[in-house]
Amino acid sequence: MTTLLIAAIAFVGTHFLMSHPLRAPMVRLLGNFFFLGAYSAVSIVTLIWMIQAYNAVPPGEAAWAVGDPLWAVATVLMWFGSVLFVGSLLGNPAFPYVIAGEAGARGPKGVFAITRHPMMWGIALWGIVHILIAPRPANFVLNGAIIILALVGSALQDGKKKRLLGEAWRGWVARTSYFPFARGFAMPGATALIGGTLLWLLAMYGHRWFGIMGAGVFRWV
């Protein structure tokens, strides 16, 4: 468990350091292309380390009982997270190649009318769901690290984008919300709904490839 904690801190900490205080000096030293390579390499290495440490921890006692009602809640949350994630892949102003000013001028559409960080909320919901249905010590650490990276990272990204993009990002922030549905109900759009539902079904079915039967709706089907 100690190794898992250290690995989780390294995984989250290196992401935050390389994304914020160390980004500018690393880009100056390595150039953008090699910085992205170094960032990816460190991220992959620390993720593999965290997963290996997680697999070495004995399961331990569950913190609460997990029955069908909790499974039902987790299944719905996972569907919503999948819809957000798929919707985030199209026209995301947080991506380098998307012009935030143009997105802000058009106004938020689809999942971006729900939250301006749909990808990170999708990932965070994945972590929350796995804690809900497997409330064991190692899961709290592994998935807690993923949740912190996603949600704290989103908030830090807002600050960085404001500094880098100025009014373009401020305009986007003014028309969107950090928390899902904080600015009212919005539909995610057909592409996100269909693609997210297909991803959700595939992921639940795919659990059996790892020896986990009956995940999500396949618990009852």
Rank of each mutant, 00 (worst) to 15 (best):
P93V: 05
L90N: 05
G159N: 11
V73S: 06
R163E: 15
S88Q: 10
S154N: 06
D158N: 07
H117W: 06
K161M: 13
T75F: 00
G107V: 15
L84T: 11
G107S: 13
L151Q: 02
I123R: 08
L77P: 00
V152G: 05
I128S: 00
H130L: 04
A94P: 01
V76N: 00
P137W: 00
S88C: 03
G110H: 10
I147W: 01
I148C: 10
N92L: 00
Q157Y: 01
F112I: 08
G159C: 09
A105G: 05
F85H: 04
P96Y: 02
H117K: 10
V98W: 03
F95L: 08
I128Q: 00
K161F: 09
L89M: 13
H130A: 01
M120R: 12
I123S: 07
G107H: 15
L77Y: 03
V86I: 15
A94Y: 02
I148G: 03
R136M: 12
A105W: 02
A113L: 12
V98K: 03
F140P: 05
A155W: 14
F140A: 08
P135H: 04
A134F: 07
S82K: 13
H130Q: 12
K161C: 08
S88R: 05
L149N: 15
A124S: 09
A105H: 09
Q157T: 15
V76R: 09
V152S: 08
S82F: 05
R136N: 05
V129A: 07
V73E: 02
A100G: 05
S154E: 04
F85Q: 09
N143D: 14
K161N: 14
W79L: 15
I146M: 12
M120D: 01
A150T: 15
L77I: 11
L149S: 10
V129C: 13
A74M: 09
A155L: 14
Q157W: 01
V86P: 06
N139R: 07
V83I: 13
V152F: 11
L142F: 13
R163V: 13
L156Q: 07
R116Q: 09
L125F: 09
R116P: 04
P96D: 09
Y97S: 12
F95H: 10
G91Q: 03
I131V: 14
A155D: 05
S154M: 07
R106H: 08
S82H: 11
A103D: 02
S154F: 01
